[in-house]
Amino acid sequence: MSILDFKFTSKIGNFSLSASSEFNEGINFMWGRSGNGKTTLLNSLAGFLKPSEGEITFSNKLIFSTNQNINLSPENRNISYVQQDEVLFDNMNVLRNIEFGFNLLNDTQKKITPSECLEIFDIKELQKVFPYELSGGQKQKVSLARAIARNGDLLLLDEPINSLDFVASKKIFQSLEKITEELGLCVLYITHSIDEIFKSKNEILFIDKGVADKKILRNKLLDYWEDELLINTIEKIEYKDKYFISDSILISKKPFDHSGMGFYFSGQIRNIYSKLNHSLLEIKSDKDYFVTLDNEILNKLILNNKDKVYGFVYKNHIL
């Protein structure tokens, strides 16, 4: 039996979303192009939008049903939600923002405290600060901490860390994974980041043209990815405490015999995701590396899964 189970139709103006799926504990990703209904889906689950028909079951409890005339209000659904461009309460400082939902809970519902959330998201020093003094990234951390401190069993996240830089977002994501596991949360996560999606162990709910009923494996998702998007997301690799984005990576099956100014790495090919013109290599090393290559080059190099490869990135491409 799944924790979250739904089948409903929601309408906003001329747009209609037909959603049907089920989810269990862990981080579950949703992917779709803009305007295809991702936010509509989360708003319907949260109770901000009333579906025209269908049912939503969460933790064996019917929270919405047109047949049985049930429509629990958002405050009674036990759901935490970080909306896209989430807003903080301007009249409260960071600590009071995070405590807001927590203070409305009874003792049995309290599994994680606001002070723990402040520490997890590394915002302890911001607790007395008011929202208008925060940067976009800090606001997203506070929003996440506030949602976690609400202690809901279902966590809905709509691009929650898109304002953070690569290093910060990776750290936050790791914290999120840890909390999800510790608290046994069911997380529904919307992202456009290839890095985040490629961490998914579960199938990804694919939303296309108002239909959300298909779960696909992450490598299948590349079939729906635009070539240019894939190319532009070539790589984000940690380089000591910095990171770089580069489209000038040399890949070789033999060690490089030169020692140029740049960054060398090596590893084993874990996966090759091929598209019409390009392929994405997932290279397992001390860290995960993603490199896109022209298919022509890939064929010339005769690269296969589990092959050991060597990589080099020019220093002038290191940010």
């Binding site: 958002p74 759901i79 935490s80 989430e86 309460f89």
Partner: peptide
């Protein structure tokens, strides 16, 4: 969005009005 945020955090309508 403020109203929605308050309610999903567990505040009912009267608390949302008073606090938010």
């Amino acid at each position: 969005k403020l109203v929605n945020t308050s309610r999903i955090l567990g505040a009912n309508l009267s608390k949302t009005f008073f606090y938010i």
